[in-house]
Nucleic acid binder design. Structure first.
Lengths: 169, 169
DNA sequence: TATTGTTATACTCTATAACTATA
DNA sequence: TATAGTTATAGAGTATAACAATA
């Protein structure tokens, strides 16, 4: 149930005055939301829930799609570098890459000049999966950010880049 | 290892030309980051990692602190309303509240006018925990958002509110 | 019959440390 | 000795459905 639905139901509960009024909730929100860190968490969950709807039951998870797309954009990206860039722990990345390799969506390549390292490339099947789900991802984004106009979207993007330590304007 | 360290190590690897150059990484970042949804995820992980450092080994987890603080700000908040507001599933909230109640940090109160519902209030011990960790949380925020000036911080806050569907300007 | 919360189960994700192979 | 990745393990968090109590 959504917070909005919960609130509207609460304030009309059986005609009895509720313990928590809409005004109290909004007040609490105003207080809690002073923390941008908290808001990032809530926004992230909002994004996840929207993406989850579109990816569940599909061929790849949201995380797997993100990894595959990153590899598609950066063929021969080193596994550890990719893990660090996406904030995925190395053991988790190993497991994910194992699974994706078993499903023939990517290949591990060991370069001659440094046989400790592993580079990742998509198979044609992997590229097909990226192509298939990219529109879903895009549509989810459109849905998530409907409340922002173009300028606000770009502003948000740039501010988040700064927070994450990525290149920005 | 941080992405920056990984990159700097990679490009100077044994004096051998690496398969992935810094320029390629930056290029990939520029492409991937077109997605604000993805960036919210990365920013959220950045926030989490900073908070995690400060909360690990402590009396409460980050999630528990967030719940306790919300209850402190909103005494007698209904359990389900709180769960929805924080995007925590009801079964998870039940388990967390069980644990917090066992540790005497909060109390469940069943109101007379609706004995299905459960209201939450902090115990004095719970209030002490909130008071103890609130500065840690604040300091983490300061650390996380050093790259933003005051105006940018407020902008980010407002944009995230819009995305999350919370009240905004 | 709808609401509120709990239980049970299975699954994913994560953190951590110990390990192998290579440089 | 340092780097790159893997394995093993234990814990936290989540989704889902079935359940009980109350309205």
């Amino acid at each position: 149930m959504s917070i909005k639905k919960a609130i509207s139901q609460d304030i009309s509960l059986d005609g009895v005055k509720p313990a928590v009024t809409k005004e109290q909730i909004v007040e609490s929100i105003s207080t809690i939301e002073k923390s941008a860190g908290f808001l990032i968490r809530i926004a992230e969950l909002t994004v996840f829930e929207e993406l989850y709807k579109r990816f569940k039951g599909g061929e790849v998870s949201i995380g797997e799609f993100t990894v595959l797309r990153a590899i598609g954009l950066n063929p021969n990206l080193r596994q550890g570098v990719l893990a660090d860039a996406l904030h995925i722990k190395w053991p988790s990345m190993t497991k994910m890459v194992n699974s994706l390799e078993l499903r023939r969506l990517l290949k591990r390549v060991v370069p001659l000049h440094n046989r400790r390292s592993i580079e990742l490339v998509l198979t044609p099947e992997g590229e097909a999966v990226v192509a298939e789900y990219a529109p879903e991802f895009k549509n989810a984004e459109t849905e998530i950010f409907t409340t922002l106009d173009d300028e606000e979207y770009l502003q948000l993007e740039n501010l988040l880049r700064k927070v994450a330590g990525w290149p920005h304007k």
